[in-house]
Amino acid sequence: MAHLYRQGWCLASVLLVPLLVLASPGLLKLNAVGPAWGVLWLLPWALVDGPVSGALVGVGLGLLLDALHLGPVTVVPALAVLGWWWGRLGRRGAPIDRSGSLALLAVLGSLLLGVTVLAQQLWRGELVPAAAQILLAQALITGLLAPLVCSLQVLLWRQQLPGVRG
């Protein structure tokens, strides 16, 4: 069976995520909080390529993103779990890739990512007073961008894998 990760340039597109995180375009910010770019990239990938690929790529993406942030807080477990979960959803029968579903999945993913970061900061005694605000702002802006960004990616990845149900 064909897999997306066999195609080098598809996998290389993950490098766009750290670049977007660093560039953090000011127009795509809500209350100075940018979207979770990792979630926006991982969601269509996992939906198209399945749970194992999703989890593995999630781990790789998490390692890339951790390298950009100061401190030992990590996003690897959250992204791995999300990749696995979304991969399983993508392999289910009913089509999941409607705009509304994508937005909902992206919001849930962003919330899960934020909660794991928050939990680690709590554990380290570095509680952010504005945590709820950041969590909600990131979930909202991620959900708003997801129908546009993720739908395009789902289409693009499906074109690369003609054998996959479309």
Binding site: V21, L22, A23, S24, K29, N31, A32, V33, G34, H69, L70, G71, V73, G114, V117, Q121, V128, I134, A137, Q138
Partner: peptide
Amino acid sequence: VISRQEGGWWQQVL
């Protein structure tokens, strides 16, 4: 300053 993340979970600039 070539990158700034002053909102969100991390507060850092590059």
